[in-house]
Design a binder for these strands. Structure first.
Length: 830
DNA sequence: ACCCTTCTGCTTTAC
DNA sequence: GCAGAAGGGT
């Protein structure tokens, strides 16, 4: 193999074009050995306009640096300027800088911004990319050192699950009790923590299928190797192994990477941390940028601890705090700061701004989620009439099911909206199917891809046929396509199957020949056409068929810029966001998670209710840590707003198909009175559920300090709610003691909690969960207070008669609304 | 092989 | 309330 380090493009000096006409500008310094400007030297143009802290972060090039960058403090600017600074001082060639991001989007933006600052030669930064894309790059170069061939394929979650299912079947494990999905998550978790199969402790391995987890993990890894495949976790894990087991390779990378930069450090998991630490042992010039207060991905392995511990991990680290906020008004920052101050595990920053204080954050209660959507719709229209662009407004929800209500409302209003995120382009079935065809063409050994489309569209190659192919493949030791080819030549298959399979194999051979002769987009069209795949959707008369055909066209279009099919497939396996940017002015609807990093003039934050936000599951499964992460999510939400942050909660919401009443989120209690204005939704209902749960003792006592709402919380609606709450709390206290349960449950929410807790609502009461001495969550399995035949009243559906009662779930025949399933504490006896 | 019924579960989601 | 998966019947 040719020495990969001496590729000609790698060490060409990064000749910065004379971007700025100023003498002594960056162009003049873009040479190796150029000295930094002396004390009397002129300040380079790219440092203009940085505040002192930003500048310190940019100029501290040597040694470990942690930049704690609060929301809206110019984090990306610091990162990009720092790279430009390093380049223009001639401290390193572009190819000697490792710059890691989490998303392709972030990597792209960084490239663009550096490009805008130094000219168009960002091509010269080969090591700017996501953790995973850089991992792939390393693995492809040294594949054979970790038992792979350089052309290995990267499996996505779907392939992964299919593979695991096969393993579970082979091990005769009941897939009902131990679903492949769970195993996949477990293995991902191990990989996130940098654990290879032999490193999984016995206790951990026991977590799946009575101790067989570890063996299954080992089997899975063996299967991947046999398939010459890796999953996403492996991209890091195998890179780590590569570096650990091959000191010479590690030394090469040490020599190479003179400067390391990491974006969103608070989101790194253990594997990523280990990987970075290995690489940083070379130059020690590692600069991590992040915000512990915006760590919201703990559930997928991110370790806030990484950022909290930076000092001790990288001795002598310089810490720079960016606290000057350029985004939001004073009231918004004040509200966000007070909220996040309730978290204990944080490094602590205080954002300030020199701008105006602006409008207070508003909190609005609505009767139910529909009224909430209506109120937000009206506010949007009002703002629009004041001349504010829809594109500068966003609705940020906790869970995607909340989106539907807004979509419905906006459709009837004729309000233009855009849903960001959602099912990703590449995840859609039709895209995955099309890609599977292309994968089989590009790499005939891709068994998983072949399996996916062998009978899509339906061509009579069902389970029986597939099993035969499988058996033969295993017996002879060849990939499925090859096995199919051999079977076609034998007498073993049923005549009909044999003919169909022969055609399919022949088609793949034909397409593979055409691969070299035409652009990949044209080939894709031919494949989709000749395979009958397009036709399948044309015949499909379901509502979304047209959209799927549209997506297929979009896929074909998106293939055009690539050099060849293989290049396209490589790209696709690493790139998520192929979402076409819808044209026109529209309100954005998205989850809080996908809003991170974005900003809007006006931000609507609906659904601030206990159980939904903070989400019950976060509390149940992660306890205090979960609560703190939810709070950071709230913080992220508020800090997205430049001028207006508008928080909403509803007293009634439909979850899992049932109407439930809800309690305002404790986070509302944690917003400071002086930055918040409580308004009432027009509609006159106020809210009827209960008050915020802050005072009922589920949290540490200091959480309760914020309960004292002064004048701003003395609106009639609020007071009405308070008195409701008192009554509810008393009623629940009685319920609880009657049921023999320990006290201290969620006050007015004890019944509500059960609804979010699957175990309880299906009869398996899980009881309260005590974490660090505080009861964080509870649920109840108490029998219903209502008998079949009882007359009841429901706030939403009116009068009715109980048709069936099962635990606290009732089936009620309502006089007007028909039969509904409701929970018993939403109805009263009449 | 395919269709229809039943069962289950249900936060967030990059690569 | 709804969607996706799985199982049984034809």
């Amino acid at each position: 193999m040719a020495d990969p380090w001496n590729r000609p493009d790698d060490d060409i000096p990064f000749d910065l074009p004379a971007h700025t006409p100023r003498p002594g500008g960056i162009a003049a310094r873009a040479r190796v050995g150029a000295q930094p400007p002396g004390p009397a030297g002129r300040v380079p143009a790219y440092l203009d306009g940085l505040n002192p802290e930003q500048r310190a972060a940019v100029e501290a090039t040597e040694g470990p640096v942690l930049v704690l960058a609060g929301a809206g403090t110019g984090k990306t600017r610091v990162l990009t300027t720092r790279i430009v600074h390093i380049l223009s001082l001639g401290l390193a060639y572009p190819s000697q800088i490792l710059a890691v991001t989490f998303t392709n989007k972030a990597a792209r933006e960084m490239k663009e911004r550096i490009g805008a600052m130094v000219g168009e030669q960002v091509e010269g930064m080969p090591w700017l990319g996501t953790f995973h894309s850089i991992g792939v790059r390393m693995l492809r170069r040294h594949a054979e050192l970790v038992g792979l061939k350089s052309g290995f394929t990267i499996l996505d979650t779907d392939d992964q699950i299919r593979l695991l299912k096969q393993l579970l079947q082979a091990e005769q494990i009941d897939e009902k009790r131990w679903p492949a999905r769970l195993l996949a998550n477990t293995i991902d978790g191990w990989k996130n923590r940098g654990l290879t199969p032999d490193m999984v402790s016995a206790g951990e391995g026991a977590a799946f299928a009575n101790g067989r987890g570890q063996k299954l993990y080992a089997d899975y890894q063996a299967r991947l190797k046999a398939l010459n495949a890796v999953d996403f976790g492996d991209l890091l894990l195998e890179s780590i192994r590569l570096l650990r087991e091959n000191p010479d390779v590690l030394a090469e990378y040490h020599r190479r990477f003179r400067y390391i930069l990491v974006d969103e450090y608070q989101d790194t998991n253990v594997a990523q941390y280990l990987w970075l630490r290995l690489l940083a042992q070379g130059s020690h010039n590692v600069c991590c940028v992040g915000d512990d207060d915006q760590s919201i991905y703990g559930w997928r392995g991110a370790e806030v601890d990484n950022i909290l511990r930076f000092d001790s991990d990288f001795p002598g680290a310089k810490v720079v705090r960016l606290e000057r906020n350029y985004r939001s008004t004073g009231h918004i920052l004040g509200a966000a700061a007070h909220l996040i101050a309730h978290n204990e595990g944080r490094l602590g920053k205080t954002l300030f701004s020199e701008g105006e204080s602006g409008e207070k954050v508003t909190v609005t209660g609505a009767w139910d989620s529909q009224e909430e959507a209506r109120a937000i719709g009206e506010e949007i229209e009002a703002l629009q009439h004041q001349g504010r662009a829809l594109s500068q407004m966003a609705i940020l929800v906790r869970a995607s099911f909340q989106m539907r209500e807004f979509e419905d409302r906006f459709v009837t209003m004729g309000l233009n909206y855009r849903v960001i995120g959602g099912p990703r382009f590449y995840e859609r079935a039709e895209i995955r199917d099309a890609l599977a065809y292309l994968r089989v063409i590009a790499s005939p050994a891709d068994d998983l891809a072949f399996e996916r489309i062998v009978n899509v569209p339906k061509r009579g190659l069902g389970d029986a046929a597939l099993r035969q192919i499988h058996d033969h493949a295993r017996a002879v030791g060849v990939p499925l396509v090859e096995a199919a080819r051999q079977l076609v030549g034998s007498e073993e298959l049923k005549p009909k199957v044999r003919l169909t399979l022969r055609d399919l194999v022949a088609s793949f051979d034909r397409w593979r020949e055409q691969m070299a002769a035409m652009p990949q987009s044209q080939l894709a069209e031919i494949v989709l056409d000749e395979s009958g795949y397009t036709e399948m959707w044309q015949k499909d008369r379901s509502a979304d068929a047209a959209g799927r055909l549209e997506n297929l066209k979009e896929l074909v279009r998106s293939m055009e810029p690539f050099e060849n099919l293989v290049g396209f497939l490589e790209h696709i396996s690493l790139v998520m966001d192929a979402e076409g940017s819808g044209a026109g002015d529209a309100v954005s609807i998205m989850t809080l998670h996908s809003a991170k990093g974005l900003e809007f003039d006006v931000v609507f934050l609906p659904g601030w209710e206990e159980g939904l936000f903070p989400h019950q599951r976060a509390l149940d499964e992660q306890g205090r840590a979960g609560l703190e992460e939810e709070r950071r999510l709230a913080y992220v939400g508020i800090t997205r707003a430049r001028r207006f942050a508008k928080v909403f909660f509803a007293s009634n919401r439909r979850i899992h198909g049932m109407w439930q009443s809800s309690v305002p989120s404790r986070f509302l209690d944690e917003l400071p009175e002086n930055h918040v204005e409580v308004t009432e939704s027009r509609g006159g209902h106020g809210w009827g559920g209960a008050t915020s749960a802050g005072r009922y003792g589920y949290g540490p006592s200091r959480f309760d300090e914020a309960q004292t709402f002064g004048s701003s919380y003395s609106t009639p609606g609020w007071q009405r709610a308070q008195s409701h709450a008192q009554a509810n709390a008393q009623a629940n206290a009685q319920n609880n003691s009657a049921g023999g349960r320990r006290e201290g449950q969620f006050g007015g929410f004890s019944e509500g909690a059960s609804r979010y807790s699957p175990g309880a609502s299906r009869g398996g009461a899980s009881g309260g969960r005590v974490i660090e001495g505080h009861l964080v969550a509870s649920s109840t399995g108490a029998p219903s207070r209502f008998a079949v035949g009882a007359r009841v009243f429901h706030q939403k559906f009116g009068y009715g008669e109980v048709a069936a009662a099962e635990g606290n779930k009732l089936t009620v025949q309502f006089d007007k609304a028909g039969e509904k399933r409701v929970l018993d504490n939403y109805v009263e006896a009449v």
